[in-house]
Design a protein around this nucleic acid. Sequence first.
DNA 1: CAGCATCCTGCGTGATACTG
DNA 2: CAGTATCACGCAGGATGCTG
Lengths: 125, 125
Amino acid sequence: MAKARTVPACGCPVAAFQKLISGKYKLRIVWDLKDGPRRYGEIRTGLLRGMPGSAEIAPRVLSRELKALTESGLIDRKDFGVVPPKVEYRLTRKGRTFVPVVAAIKDWGTRHLAEARAPEMVAAE
Amino acid sequence: MAKARTVPACGCPVAAFQKLISGKYKLRIVWDLKDGPRRYGEIRTGLLRGMPGSAEIAPRVLSRELKALTESGLIDRKDFGVVPPKVEYRLTRKGRTFVPVVAAIKDWGTRHLAEARAPEMVAAE
DNA sequence: CAGCATCCTGCGTGATACTG
DNA sequence: CAGTATCACGCAGGATGCTG
């Protein structure tokens, strides 16, 4: 079984949460998916938005996070089994309950540590 | 300059949040401090509670997380400058605004991924 | 298009010992 | 008591190339 690195396997919900979203993109993936299903490439492109210049996402990394989220039961993977390949990811019911939490996080972040962002953007998004 | 490992330095509030709480104990420290100031040793002991058996917290680790939280402006360090040493940590105003977010996280965790916890405990805490 | 296989590296974390 | 110093390790994450 997967031994948690960042967080102990105690009963603490906070620790469990941290384990669940450990990783660079998990929270943002969930957030991207809140508006509906998205394909692998769309998620990838979406995550690129807002990243510094020449940054690229290693497919291995994104793939792993998606798989982890799937195994956590937050998202669902639908493989259309066609060529060229088409795969859609979308939030499960559990995943949807998670959205408000992410919203709270996002909201707090926007209010308290968005020094790098222009005020107008804060209001907009 | 400290290049973020776990999270990119983009304007995304979610990413900023992740960077802020990256680390094993940060969220739990904030949560522990919500009820008032605590000393170094008290935090340490409190975090031990709920951890698997023989686990110990390396002082270096705890020290680093506390320093990081201090530099993030979430907590405040008060050194009494006495012997034997006495240091108290407590939430700043900003840190206090963060508590509801942690509460939301904790609440969600309790509801959706607390399979390891007894139902009574869920209701209690 | 949506990944998997492989190699590599940096940082978070742990353990132990020491100090003001 | 509240840390710092030092050493060591494992895993997340990046880069590149290949495949069904």
